[in-house]
């Protein structure tokens, strides 16, 4: 079975989404969570480009993917600043240690 360029790119999209989702499930560090979100957004961007390329509307796909890039950069900024503030107020970056009830 020989793979076309379309299915190869689709495999890349699914691979990026799978890695990002797996990271969101197992990762504990708040900064690593932002890394996982970045990987998920990369999958979304590549998916947009693939869809636009198949449809013949690459310009539209590019403009949508541009919005996704900006949104995911802003998500990274807000997430990282939340992580920094949490580190300063609670003294840890561990997601499971953030509750005050168990301590």
């Amino acid at each position: 079975m020989t793979l076309s360029l379309v299915s190869l790119t689709f495999i890349a999209v699914i691979g990026l989404l799978a890695i990002g989702l797996y990271a969101l499930l197992v990762v504990h560090n708040l900064i690593k969570v932002v890394v996982a979100l970045q990987i998920l957004a990369k999958g979304a961007i590549l998916g947009f480009i693939l869809a636009g390329r198949i449809n013949g509307q690459i310009g539209l796909a590019e403009s949508l993917a541009l919005t996704v890039i900006i949104v995911d950069t802003i998500v990274a900024v807000i997430g990282l600043s939340l992580a920094v503030q949490i580190r300063h107020h609670m003294g840890t970056l561990d997601v499971s240690a953030l509750t005050r009830l168990r301590r």
Binding site: S4, V6, S7, F10, R53, G56, I58
Partner: peptide, 12 residues
């Protein structure tokens, strides 16, 4: 998804 990639239609 086994089909080949269609010809690129360049849009700005």
């Amino acid at each position: 998804l086994g089909f080949e990639m269609p010809q690129l239609v360049p849009t700005r």
